[in-house]
């Protein structure tokens, strides 16, 4: 058994803790504490003796991303959900930085945490959404969704488990391929045409958004 399954526990147990804590009461708090403790143990198993600042930051930042994503998905207030999403994006940006793709970390912050989230918040403020009725979620559909998600997760991790550590960063790979220069050269070299097409897509989306939301003025 490789260190994948403990990692799964490390990610999922805090979510269980968060969930029980939210349900309130003393039992919830207790369960949350136990979850957090077990998760910390699992983290210890995973990290083992690879104790470097970068590695530890990866696990902490990724846990932040997972937990805020959980809040986004489970929360009833869209405004809080949007704000939690900032945590998710920032956590992922941190992970990118840990992975030495600093450029992408920056792009992540500017585009997602900046532009896209602002758009979300605009809309949330604009449409004045009511709080979602708690009874309307869950039900058979929710249980089926959670079961499917957990089953898929188990299967994916099972598929990943045998890979073990084998796919560690390529031996002797220099930092060069991840630099801004490398990405830029690739974008404006071999990927020039797709890049231009992507910009065209953005233009179309821009026009589409304006046409769709601006229709009221005509009528």
């Amino acid at each position: 058994m490789t260190s994948v399954w403990p990692l799964l526990l490390y990610y999922l147990l805090p979510l269980v803790g968060l969930w029980t804590y939210r349900r309130g009461g003393r039992t919830g708090t207790l369960a949350a504490g136990i979850s957090w403790f077990l998760a910390a143990v699992a983290l210890g198993v995973v990290i083992g003796d690879a104790r470097s600042f970068a590695v530890i930051s990866f696990y902490l930042l990724s846990l932040v991303a997972v937990m805020t994503a959980f809040l986004v998905v489970t929360g009833t207030n869209p405004v809080y959900g949007a704000l939690s999403l900032i945590g998710t994006f920032t956590g992922i940006a941190g992970v990118f930085v840990v992975l030495q793709c600093e450029f992408f970390g920056i792009v992540q912050v500017i585009l997602y945490a900046g532009a896209i989230l602002v758009l979300y918040l605009f809309v949330v403020m604009m449409v004045d959404l009511p709080k979602e009725n708690a009874q309307k979620r869950g039900g058979v559909r929710g249980i089926a969704a959670i079961a499917t998600g957990l089953g898929l997760l188990a299967l994916v991790v099972k598929a990943l488990a045998p890979l073990g550590m084998r796919l560690q960063p390529a031996a002797g790979a220099s930092a060069e391929p991840y630099s801004v220069r490398a990405v830029g050269t690739a974008l404006f070299g071999p990927y020039l045409v797709p890049f231009e097409v992507a910009s065209l897509l953005l233009l179309v989306a821009l026009v589409g958004a304006i046409v769709l939301s601006g229709r009221e003025r005509e009528s």
Binding site: A144, A145, T148, G149, G151, L152, A159
Partner: peptide, 11 residues
């Protein structure tokens, strides 16, 4: 959901 279940079955 059906797509998800389908992927799960295939996996």
């Amino acid at each position: 959901l059906v797509i998800g279940i389908g992927i799960a079955v295939i996996l």
